[in-house]
């Protein structure tokens, strides 16, 4: 636990990576890489500690073998071009298709079949055990996990057409 220290109040504090000490760049294969205090990490993984409430803060930086290098308290404090690199990496890593329209919603034998539109693309998926696999986030976003482990999000349920919304709503907690 080399990045924790005891603060004056007797409580554990956390040492973050200083935005000035690090430099993100893209390696020749297109992966994000990091130079920290003169040391090069040819490929790093970025992980969100609080993916929903703090998407660009508390970013864990790990080596490819999951060993943590450190944590960035706020990626937005990085210089603009570096932040956009980090942002791009995080957004691609945490990509979650946004459902723009629910075309139909049916229940059959305990399985829930969705036919949805993601942008202009039509798709369908099935959800089992809806109480476990649908989650509403504090900001009102609804996340749906399908049987194959894919996740979909509905940022604003109000925008889904009312007929299908009324069908879905009783199953949301």
């Amino acid at each position: 636990m080399d990045d924790t220290k005891v603060t004056q109040s007797g409580f554990l504090g956390l040492e973050f990576i200083e935005p000035g000490d690090c430099c993100f760049y893209t390696n020749p294969h297109g992966f994000i890489a990091l130079r920290l205090n003169g040391k090069d990490y040819p490929r790093v993984k970025l992980t969100r500690a609080y993916p929903y409430t703090e998407p660009f803060a508390y970013i864990g930086i790990e080596e490819t073998d999951d060993k943590e290098i450190g944590m960035l308290k706020n990626a937005e404090e990085l210089p603009a071009e570096q932040f956009s690199l980090v942002r791009k990496e995080l957004e691609s890593r945490y990509f979650c298709p946004v459902i723009t329209e629910v075309l139909s919603f049916k229940e059959k034998m305990g399985h829930f079949y969705f036919e949805v539109k993601i942008g202009e693309h039509k798709t369908n998926f099935a959800v089992r055990d809806i109480s476990r696999n649908v989650r509403t986030l504090p900001d009102g976003t609804t996340l749906i996990f399908d049987m194959d482990g894919n996740r979909y999000s509905i940022p604003d349920l109000e925008k889904i057409d009312s007929k299908n919304r009324r069908k879905i709503e009783p199953f949301l907690y």
């Binding site: 636990m1 924790t4 409580f11 554990l12 956390l14 500690a49 609080y50 703090e54 508390y58 944590m71």
Partner: peptide
Amino acid sequence: FSMVVAAAKA
């Protein structure tokens, strides 16, 4: 959030 992370690290 940082206290939570620190406690989890400890």
